[in-house]
């Protein structure tokens, strides 16, 4: 992997994440919303961006040592948990009845169920990481549970995001969602079948 290809790969990743975040940040809808709602909304968009980065850290991307990638995978996971907390907390402050309806799965909006599903999968993943030593699961079992939860998080979030009429641009939202799905599937496939190796390595 040459330096130029490394720059190209990371540059493409930055674009996939930065464009939807910028479009959302510049949305005229923010003018009509309280700060708690704006924070919740942007945290949600950033979390979707994290869902593209997170699996890619497990597909041996170019230019970074594996040990560093592992550390970053853990840090990025922590960031995801914080973003989910801001997303849900901000919505609870912005409109308690709407947010509580969503959490209790009685919201009129179909995408809420997917968001809540993803939220619980994130919570379970965090518990799985925190109790990794205590649970004494076989590494393969632990990884299998983690990967299933990760797929639920990404798929749930993508369905949640595409159905929402909000601050994200349609094209950049779909691009980020499809990229996150592809990255998640690639990372899990690589974990299941280590024989799949990158071209040219």
């Amino acid at each position: 992997m040459t330096l130029s290809r490394t720059i190209l790969a990371w540059g493409a990743l930055a674009l996939f994440v930065a464009v939807p975040v910028l479009v959302a940040a510049l949305s005229p809808l923010h003018a009509y919303r309280p700060p708690s709602y704006v924070a919740a909304s942007l945290a949600g968009v950033l979390a979707l961006g994290v869902l593209l980065i997170q699996p890619l850290l497990k597909t041996r991307p170019p230019g970074v040592a594996p040990a560093r990638l592992r550390r970053w995978h853990r840090r990025t996971g922590f960031v995801l948990v914080v973003l989910v907390a801001v997303h849900v907390g901000g919505l609870l402050i912005a409109s308690p009845p709407d947010a509580i309806d969503a959490l209790l799965l009685r919201s009129p909006t179909p995408f809420s169920v997917w968001g809540v599903t993803s939220m619980w999968a994130v919570v379970l993943s965090a518990v799985l990481v925190a109790l990794r030593r205590k649970m004494r699961l076989r590494p393969a079992t632990w990884a299998a549970i983690h990967n299933v939860l990760a797929l639920v998080v990404v798929l749930g979030t993508v369905i949640h995001a595409v159905q929402i009429e909000g601050t994200m641009g349609t094209v950049s939202k779909w691009a980020l969602c499809l990229a996150a799905l592809a990255a998640a599937i690639a990372a899990v496939a690589r974990a299941r079948f280590p024989g799949i190796s990158r071209r040219g390595t």
């Binding site: 009509y32 919303r33 919505l91 709407d98 909006t109 995408f111 159905q163 009429e165 909000g166």
Partner: peptide, 8 residues
Amino acid sequence: IVPTFGQP
């Protein structure tokens, strides 16, 4: 009316 909680 502007969209809120994902729907206008």
